[in-house]
Design a protein around this nucleic acid. Structure first.
Ligand SMILES: [Mg+2]
Length: 739
DNA sequence: ACGGCTCGGGG
DNA sequence: GTGTACGAGCCGT
């Protein structure tokens, strides 16, 4: 099984395949050469370019048509970008931007992670001595924690009396010991949380500053926001980008992700306090060591959850887990198609060039159909969903850049006005069919076997199949086609509207519908009628399309399009689009919103929810709330001088700086809005934990700009106005009653 | 409603 | 590394 691939050499590339089949070993291949394709030029032209290794005529297809192409070979991968521009003057060039190791896997029909996944995983994490924000040139690393499935440990250089702590003399020795341990443990996979952007570049810099002998190589690829760190010989997986892709959370701190996955809490020591814990020694130091260990253990736990899916995707797409774990689903589809094109002798279209990307990115088209909900609280809801709506539409209607625009299949014209030929094979629909039938096979196997790998395999296949529609509208896609993307959603709208119409004709009450699902309100918990409706619908749908029973919900709250909450029959909450997510909301707003949702769904009482809001506004006015519930946090991400929009946090940072406080890039600004007139940004005061505020907070601001907007997202569904929710000392309502 | 700006994880 | 992110949410118009 191959878990990573790269190449070495200065003027001749040698491919390295990192394998483990029981034993670990490296395979080398020095007989593979970089190449690109040229179309519309001859080898005679090309051989005029000095430095090219070889040129040979080849027959290929391009956009499905036979073409005479030339295969231009180079001595070394990095020669490609060197000669690219010159070669463009002789004709069109293709496949000129494919990293060498990836090209190798594709051309040699090698699929990484193919048999068995018995890889050894080591998770690690560092703690640094940081007073303001981390500066790897001067702030030392003070602890390194490691975790494997067998044990966990912390290395440090202050005395800590804990059985898992190994104490050494200084930072240099700690790093040396860390490298030694990696060698001893001998893992294939290195797991970190945000290691691409923090831990690995930091360790590398410390190694340089301290001139530590380092047996590992860290290759930093891409600088800035897209930094990735490759450690040759290992597969480094950063769980942060994976967590962002796979989970839907309000924040993606290690703690939040760990809790989501395990249901367990872990301790957290704020970054700016770590140096204090270190300096104090004694108990705080022990707590710091515990925290460090927990971090590595948490990363390992998250890794155990996410790695099998990455391995499965890697094996299906045919690229290394290192690359797969950092790729968007559209990028994965691109690599999958590239490989399939190569198998078919098809030259791949180029990525957008010049202004093409911007042009594509700025194009918009009509998306899915969303039915305006019948607002309010409903009971006994049945949800019916199309099974893989977009994949089945693409297959049924043979939606593909190459089948687009035919004259023989007028009856296969999308509501967007594009006709797709049904008499020739489409590239994308064919691959999609294979993925779906693979998935069906895996699901069959799952009935006979309880191999957990099958579950991840079918999940990976599902993810990929569902990514094809988005791919066609993805501006960087090689097989980009706005017409295809547009036609897919157009047909989707058509089918969903058909279902809604049919349901209404059968006298079923449709409460809401979005993209591929409808919610039908039943008279009681008996879902018989909905199931009969399903059967009727399915006989009328095209063969590969199917409407399915998705679930029954005793209660559901519908506010507007895309904003609703459900309570399922197990008592679990499902909310869409309602919750305030960003941290520029104060806790009081988040908590009140949550409480309102709970009361409405569990108790079915919007009136009681309104009362709760009124109570909160009352407490705010009477200054009975905790200061911590009012604090707003925002991070400074650039030097103060660079801000074009002066938000409250920028304003306060400017003030703090004038006062001589150190507010650099990366500091988190905590602030409270105080009473007064004028712009909010002129009325912010910094908040220090535990310090009493010597000004009054602005109760009106927290009511009008925090609590009310947060709960109004929900309460509008019941016709409440904001005046109904704010506590008034004079009873306006009772006055009205008298007249 | 739309477009431009800002942010994220790590210490 | 023969590749330079991206999507959500807010604010001002
Ligand atoms: Mg840590």
């Amino acid at each position: 099984m191959i878990y990573d691939c790269d190449y070495i050499g200065r003027d001749h590339a040698i491919i390295r395949l990192f394998c483990k089949n029981g034993e670990k070993h490296v395979d080398y291949d020095e007989n593979f050469l970089p190449y690109i394709y040229g179309i519309g030029c001859t080898c005679q032209d090309i051989s005029r370019v000095q430095g090219i290794k070889e040129c040979e005529p080849v027959s290929r297809t391009f956009k499905g048509e036979n073409v005479d192409a030339v295969k231009i070979l180079f001595h070394f991968p990095k020669d490609v970008p060197l000669y690219r521009e010159e070669l463009r003057s002789y004709g069109k060039i293709y496949e000129h931007d494919i990293p060498f190791a990836r090209r190798y896997l594709i051309d040699n029909d090698i699929y990484p992670m193919s048999d068995g996944h018995d890889l050894k995983v080591l998770a690690f994490d560092i703690e640094t001595y940081t007073e303001t924000y981390p500066d790897s040139r001067k702030d030392p690393i003070i602890m390194i924690s490691l975790a494997t499935s067998e044990k966990s440990a912390v290395i440090t250089y202050k005395h800590v009396e804990k059985e898992y702590v190994e104490v050494v003399e200084n930072e240099v020795q700690m790093l040396t010991r860390f490298f030694e341990l990696i060698k001893e443990i001998d893992p294939e996979v290195l797991v970190t949380y945000n290691g691409d952007n923090f831990d690995l570049p930091y360790i590398l810099e410390r190694v340089r500053v301290l001139k530590v002998e380092c047996p590992l190589e860290f290759r930093i690829l891409g600088r800035g926001a897209t930094t990735k760190v490759r450690v040759p010989g290992f597969c480094h997986i950063d769980l942060f980008p994976i967590s962002k892709r796979l989970l839907n959370l309000t924040s993606y701190t290690l703690e939040a992700v760990y809790q989501e996955i395990t249901g367990k809490c872990k301790s957290k020591i704020r970054g700016d306090l770590i140096s204090t814990y270190w300096d104090r020694g004694g108990e705080p130091l022990e707590q710091l060591a515990d925290y460090a260990r927990e971090d590595a253990e948490a990363a390992l736990a998250i890794g155990e959850k996410f790695l099998p899916l990455q391995y499965a995707l890697s094996r299906i797409v045919g690229q290394t887990p290192f690359d797969i774990s950092r790729a968007s689903s559209s990028a994965m589809v691109d690599w999958l198609l590239l490989r399939e094109a190569h198998k078919r002798g098809e030259v791949a279209p180029n990525q957008p060039h010049g202004g093409e990307y911007e042009k594509r990115a700025s194009q918009s088209y009509e998306g899915a159909y969303v039915l305006e909900p019948e607002k309010g609280l409903h009971e006994n809801l049945v949800q019916l969903d199309f099974r893989s709506l977009y994949p089945s539409i693409i297959i049924t209607h043979n939606i593909d850049p190459l089948t687009l625009g035919c004259e023989c299949c007028e009856n296969n014209t999308s509501p967007a006005g594009y006709t797709f030929c049904l008499n020739k094979k489409g590239f994308i629909p064919e691959i999609l069919k294979t993925l779906l039938s693979e998935r069906a096979k895996v699901k069959q196997q799952m009935k006979k076997s309880d191999d957990r790998m099958l579950e991840f395999q079918q999940w990976a296949l599902k993810i990929l199949a569902n990514s094809f529609y988005g791919y066609m509208g993805y501006p960087r896609a090689r097989w980009y086609s706005l017409e295809c993307a547009e036609s897919t959603t157009a047909w989707g709208r058509m089918y969903l509207k058909q279902i809604i119409d049919m349901a209404r004709k059968e006298d079923l009450k449709v409460i809401y519908g979005d993209t591929d699902s409808v919610f039908i309100k039943m008279k009681d918990s008996n879902v018989e009628r909905a199931l009969r409706f399903l059967e009727t619908v399915n006989t009328s749908l095209p063969e590969s399309m199917e409407l399915e029973f998705e679930g029954f919900y005793p209660r559901g709250l519908f506010v507007t399009k895309k904003k609703y909450a459900l309570l399922d029959d197990k008592g679990t909450f499902i909310t869409k689009g309602l919750e305030i997510v960003r941290r520029d909301w104060a806790d009081i707003a988040k908590k009140t919103q949550q409480e309102v949702l709970e009361i409405i769904l569990r108790e079915g009482s919007p009136q009681k929810a309104a009362q709760v809001v009124e109570e909160v506004t009352c407490k705010l006015k009477q200054r009975q709330v905790n200061l911590e519930d009012l604090v707003l946090y925002t991070r400074l991400t650039m030097p103060l001088s660079q801000y074009k929009q002066i938000g409250p946090h920028v304003q306060i940072a400017q003030k703090m700086k004038q006062r001589g406080e150190d507010v650099g890039v990366g500091s988190t600004i905590a602030y409270i809005v105080k009473e007064g007139r004028g712009l909010i940004r002129d009325r912010v005061v910094p908040y220090q934990e535990g310090e009493p505020l010597n000004v009054q907070y602005d109760a009106d601001y927290y009511i009008e700009n925090q609590v009310i907007p947060a709960v109004m997202r929900i309460m509008t569904a019941f016709g409440f106005k904001k005046e109904d929710l704010i506590y008034q000392r004079t009873e306006q309502m009772s006055l009205e009653k008298w007249f």
